[in-house]
Amino acid sequence: MKLILSVALLALAPAFVLAQDLPKKPVKATAKAAHKPTSSRIQLKTAAKNVAAGIEAAEAALTPAEMAIAERVQVGSVPCEFGTTVTLVADAKYPGYFNVQVKNLKYRMFPVETSTGAIRLEDQKAGAVWLQLGNKSMLMNQKLGQRLADECMSPQQVAVAESLKLHPAQSVLNAPAPLPAQAISQPVLQPEVAAK
């Protein structure tokens, strides 16, 4: 959707330039005229600014799935290990975007869909990623390949972590559940026996 809107706006840019009223008489070159932009230059600059604003708005628009992810992001100051604090603030001007700060580093992030269901915010320019799981969050810099903050826990995540300590989730490495009695009692025919 963003790409389609951006392409449409770029396609309209030449129309803005062609739609200008060009002066009918040539302008005399004087010292004042050389420093004063003509009306066609002003119109061209205005058209370029409008196209740029349209492209920026198209890039800022989030899909419904991304907005659903943004609604689940936990905002506020989140304490992390080693006394670090990460602050997440929702951007009032652009819904779905977040301002994330840790120490003297600031990021502008937006939600990204994941296959695992984890909440992921990204600042693609800076290479920063905020991952929010049920029991903890972390801030990483993918460009540098390092974690900037780990073991970050909001009050809700602390409650989930405590619950997991009391009732741990079943490991995928545990033995599989036994088959039902019906499946075991029915004989399995071998391919050569079935052919006879």
Rank of each mutant, 00 (worst) to 15 (best):
72 R>I: 07
57 A>P: 11
48 A>R: 06
114 T>C: 07
122 E>R: 15
42 I>V: 15
65 A>I: 06
139 L>C: 03
155 P>K: 11
88 L>W: 10
113 E>G: 14
69 I>P: 00
39 S>R: 13
39 S>N: 09
73 V>W: 00
112 V>T: 07
52 A>M: 13
38 T>F: 15
126 A>K: 14
97 Y>N: 06
157 Q>A: 11
46 T>A: 15
58 A>R: 06
101 Q>N: 13
63 T>R: 12
156 Q>E: 13
80 C>K: 00
113 E>T: 15
52 A>G: 12
124 Q>G: 07
139 L>Y: 00
54 G>S: 11
85 T>Q: 10
107 Y>K: 02
86 V>A: 02
124 Q>F: 09
136 K>F: 10
90 A>M: 07
82 F>Q: 07
146 Q>I: 12
88 L>Q: 07
67 M>C: 10
92 A>E: 11
114 T>N: 02
106 K>E: 04
125 K>S: 15
90 A>E: 02
64 P>V: 05
145 G>A: 08
126 A>I: 03
73 V>G: 01
144 L>I: 04
107 Y>R: 09
99 N>D: 05
38 T>C: 13
143 K>Y: 06
128 A>S: 04
56 E>S: 06
73 V>T: 00
144 L>M: 13
43 Q>F: 15
50 N>S: 05
78 V>H: 01
75 V>I: 12
96 G>P: 03
58 A>F: 05
90 A>S: 08
135 N>I: 04
100 V>W: 02
65 A>K: 14
124 Q>Y: 11
125 K>C: 10
136 K>H: 11
128 A>T: 01
118 A>K: 13
146 Q>K: 13
145 G>M: 14
97 Y>A: 03
108 R>I: 12
72 R>F: 05
148 L>C: 05
75 V>R: 14
124 Q>R: 12
74 Q>H: 15
105 L>C: 02
48 A>H: 06
149 A>R: 03
131 L>Y: 08
152 C>D: 01
116 T>Y: 03
151 E>M: 12
39 S>M: 12
58 A>K: 09
38 T>V: 14
53 A>F: 03
140 M>N: 12
123 D>H: 02
101 Q>T: 14
61 A>W: 04
94 Y>R: 15
77 S>C: 08
107 Y>S: 11
74 Q>M: 14
55 I>W: 06
51 V>I: 13
125 K>F: 14
128 A>D: 00
121 L>I: 05
139 L>M: 11
71 E>D: 03
55 I>Q: 01
87 T>M: 04
98 F>D: 00
40 S>G: 10
84 T>M: 05
41 R>A: 11
83 G>M: 01
157 Q>P: 06
135 N>Y: 10
149 A>C: 04
112 V>R: 03
135 N>M: 04
84 T>K: 08
74 Q>P: 14
156 Q>F: 11
63 T>K: 15
156 Q>H: 05
104 N>S: 14
44 L>G: 03
148 L>R: 00
119 I>V: 09
